[in-house]
Design a protein around this nucleic acid. Structure first.
Length: 273
DNA sequence: CGCCAGGTGCGAA
DNA sequence: TTCGCACCTGGC
């Protein structure tokens, strides 16, 4: 099917900027992405999105929600420039970048796996977990495995989790799966409440919680401070320390801090900044 | 080999 | 409160 795009959408940056782990770039430069209930292949041609899917149920709305195409980024970008017009070049460059809406449970596990880990290893663990506990899907002649439900992962012991490459995070993940964590209750929390709630679980610190809230719960005022942001803040503003960085960014950028940091990262990543 | 990667928990000061 | 260190795993 084809989805008509109303405003500018940078599919490449949105997929490759680091917010999605389980995707592949195909030979025709389209992307295959594993969603919670289906496998999709997307390609942008002019102002249209060409979509194939293993499951056509409510497809357009699923795609729009996943890539955050219902959000009014023009307003967000205007607000950003109102706060800091120095970012004009950055916003202009990154304006088609969308903040993804990842499935909640998968996002929590994914970012728990990210602690002291590399992107290829994170992807490897997610693939191993899905292959053992997730549903198999045939799509375009290839086999894929959806990320499993929490119920399905209830069957995994810590030893199993170690076998599917979770490493030393096996116990944290096991405990979380079997805890009384209510992923939907977070929707009704303020950002601070949600951060406190998530970080009360072992294996989830401030960075991991921020990623979960930004990429899965639409909390645009959180901003994952990773090694890259620390380096950037030190070099550009000579600011060090997690608290100082947090205060600086939030004071400067406010409610769209998370979006702005992604824009800056995307700009610097491609522009060599 | 040692070092590092989208950090975090833990014990010592 | 802050500080230093260990930590699965895999690539270099």
């Amino acid at each position: 099917m084809t989805i008509k795009l109303n405003n500018y959408f940078d599919l490449d940056s949105t997929i490759t900027c680091g917010q999605i782990f389980r995707y592949e770039i195909e030979e025709d430069n389209s992307y295959t992405v594993i969603l919670p209930d289906r496998v999709i292949n997307v390609k942008k041609v002019n102002d249209e999105l060409i979509v194939k899917s293993s499951n056509d149920n409510n497809l357009e709305e699923v795609i729009k929600e996943y890539f955050d195409l219902n959000e009014d980024y023009e307003s967000i970008n205007k607000e950003i420039l109102k706060k800091d017009n120095d970012l004009k070049e950055v916003v202009d460059y990154s304006k088609g970048l969308k903040i993804i809406n990842e499935p909640k449970f998968e996002a929590i596990i994914s970012y728990m796996l990210s602690t002291n880990n590399s992107v290829p290893n994170i992807k490897s663990a997610l693939d191993h977990i899905s292959k053992r506990y997730g549903e198999k899907v045939l799509f375009e002649g290839k086999e894929y495995y959806l990320f499993p439900s929490r119920e399905s992962l209830m069957n995994a012991s810590t030893k199993d989790l170690r076998e599917v490459k979770c490493g030393f995070r096996d116990q944290y993940i096991y405990d979380l799966i079997h805890s009384k964590l209510d992923v939907d209750s977070i929707d009704n929390m303020t950002t601070k409440e949600a951060l406190d709630y998530l970080t009360s679980y072992k294996g989830i610190g401030i960075k991991v919680a921020s990623c979960i809230l930004l990429f899965s719960y639409k909390k645009r005022d959180v901003f994952p401070v990773d090694t890259w942001v620390k380096k950037y803040m030190k070099e550009k503003y000579n600011i060090e320390g997690i608290d100082k960085i947090n205060n600086f960014i939030y004071d400067r950028y406010g409610e769209y801090s998370g979006v702005i940091l992604q824009y800056i990262f995307n700009y610097n990543r491609n522009y060599g900044g």
